[in-house]
Design a binder for these strands. Sequence first.
RNA 1: CGGGGCGUGGCGCAGUCUGGAAGCGCACCUGCUUUGGGAGCAGGGUGUCGGAGGUUCAAAUCCUCUCGCCCCGACCA
Length: 575
Amino acid sequence: MRYSSYFIPTHKEIPADAEVISHQLMLRAGMIRKLTSGIYTYLPVGLRCIRKVENIIREEMNRAGAIEVLMPAVQPAELWQESGRWEYYGRELLRFKDRHNHDMCLGPTHEEVITDLVRREIHSYKQMPINFYQIQTKFRDEIRPRFGIMRGREFIMKDAYSFDADEEGANRSYEIMYEAYKRIFQRCGLTFRAVEADSGSIGGSFSHEFMVLANTGEDQIVNCMKCSYAANLERAEVRVADEAPASESYQMEPIQEIHTPSMKTVEDVTSFLGISADQLIKTLIFVADDEVVAALVRGDYELNETKLKNVLGCQTVELAGHDLIEETTGAPVGFAGPVGLKVKVVADQSIKVMKDFVVGGNRKDFHIRNVYLNRDFKADLFGDLRVITPQDICPRCGGEIAFNRGIEVGHVFKLGEKYSRALKALYLDEQGRESTIIMGCYGIGVGRTVTAAIEQNHDKDGIIFPIPLAPFEVTVLPLQMHEQTVVESAEKIYRDLIENGIDVLLDDRDERAGVKFNDADLLGIPVRVNVGLRGLKNGKAELKIRGESETVEIPLENAAEIIVDKVKGLYDSLK
RNA sequence: CGGGGCGUGGCGCAGUCUGGAAGCGCACCUGCUUUGGGAGCAGGGUGUCGGAGGUUCAAAUCCUCUCGCCCCGACCA
């Protein structure tokens, strides 16, 4: 490609509306332009990156035996009503009516459509396993789109759906996708982790998120320093400390009500009483589905709503409003406690081993001290309810754990029969019995993978693309466009590289060297070839790798050959 | 949806409080010089001041309505 006849509108200035580095760089490098909130045009260079990711995904999905299809973006309401999501999905599902006044929506995902296809076409165990995938534009009407393409409303996604006759097959399909995803992100040259994610009612570890590690990531992940355990914060299990439960023979002080005027927070109460937060129990009032429950966690811990939901086995949990709290506890917010409460009490497992603690008094401006579990109140249910902390240990091996930030670029999920049952996707097994197909779904954010790559690989000068994602593998810079020898030598190298199948950008603009250097750096093209008078005097060109500081001279005669080797070397270094 | 902020040339912004000739930097166009890390000089043009209505002799500026965008929060995955 010749720069002068291409379209790469770069900018020196940092756009005001972009707060994360990938968004800024993508705008500055002329990769994307915003049309409206959360909706972007991919300019040629951005599109090239997108295509590189798509091609890697396509190759690996095909290798894993998945079959490519392309489903419609516009979908009829009927299917969504059938699955129950027309009601459930909320405003993120963009709905509209067609000219016949039929309810329609823009597809945020395609479980309904693919399940509809499969129920019409797949009738026998002999037709399975089968896995369909597509790379397609999705629309989710996000409340607050941000970070450019990282969290847009319209975005390109690869989604795959597996269909199996039995659990064993479904697990195998899941495993195959899990492995394919590892290969995909490896090939993209990204540093990532596959972490266990909450799978809600399905249980087990049948959901993994693929996280690209980056300090600016929106998600927190936890991983063990010793073993392979990794999970997102929502999911990460807390291992119970091996401490003896409070023994009955312990000297128990009588319960004592204390005046704590206007002390609503853990901090207020602990500093007033001169105790540490781990001697206090927080009581949080929730509405779980339709039932009011009290959740107890130690004062220094944070409650994990997902875990609460799972322990209760309910669909939704929501913190109670002020009125409900007052109605339930008889006191305003900040003074709730388990003693004398009439509602179901769920306690974090850490509370089992606590003794002599402080709780809210269920009375305005009062707390209670010297409280003991079982003597003063009982918990209906114990479980892992809290968010893991850096002081905790690995739930698998007991090793030290680390916290990292990540960007979710992929998700694999065993769906089970959720959609196949709702949409009646059935098949006949070997015995001629009718059963429900078991599904899995597997997504990759294509654009987000590009942004994650940039978040992970950049410096003050711009992007440092891993070569598999780079819009061009090599850029050739003739540094003096008015010098015929320079232009001719550069053209020769350019032609030779094209001959060798290299993605090469020839910067044939009549610009000063500095401009070309800066644009090349900004775009993040991995290999740069300088052709200038200085080197040409000795029959040399220069080779520079983006992100490395040294420039090496290479002889003009076999320049292309050396460059091709270098490109291969960059790919090989990712294996 | 709640809170906050911003809409002025292609981009980044000043001007708005206190009404009185629409400006600055970058970019862009022409010419000359320059030419290995975003050149210099000279000249040039670029505007429905987001939109509508109102107040006024006079509105980018004040008032009302409206649209769009950004940030924080709640929500969702």
